[in-house]
Amino acid sequence: MIRKMEKEYAGAKLGIWLFLFTEILLFGGLFLLYATYLSSYPREFAIAGREMHLGFGTANTILLITSSLFAAMSVTAVQQGEIRKVLNLLGATIICAMIFLVNKYFEWSSEIGHGFYPDSPRFSAGPIGEALFFSLYYLTTGLHGFHVLAGVGLLTVVALKVRRGAIHAGDYVLLENSALYWHLVDLIWIFIFPLYYLVL
């Protein structure tokens, strides 16, 4: 019986990593497009990149890194059987994620307000290339934001299960895998941040 549990634990771990690999390649397609269009339109990308709000970007980076820390700590906490602490840490992770999304909302609204969106009159008139930057920016951060939202849902379910006692020091693979997913969301952002907010 113990051996079977151990097998399932290792299997679940392998399974979630394989899933994360697919996520890496899903975003990989967008990074591929970014790389090719950056090489085709370096000047236009630089001009468009200067319109980005560095403040929002940096704040969101810090938020995600911090939420990742909380998620990692929650795994340590469950391993040590500190259930109260697990719940607090998961709550903190979720709050960070929510603030991230609120930030994102204000950032997008401001940008759209300035006329930066696909097919906008501003881009139809302007030089080609700048619009590509913003299209990619919206698609990449939009897809990422969707993953943040999914992560919030997932972590909420996990928190409820911890409270019900379904996840505990003896069986916490679901919590661990959800944390892994959450770290991946952070990882993707670690690359989005410099590529869209900094290099240009």
Partner: peptide, 26 residues
């Protein structure tokens, strides 16, 4: 997953007009 993102881009291209594959917009 690469097919997945490609197909999503086609949908985005049709519904949002992102212009990622449209030469007239780069």
């Amino acid at each position: 997953p690469v097919l997945g993102i490609t197909l999503l881009l086609v949908v985005a291209e049709r519904l949002l007009g992102t212009g990622l594959f449209d030469p007239s917009r780069g």
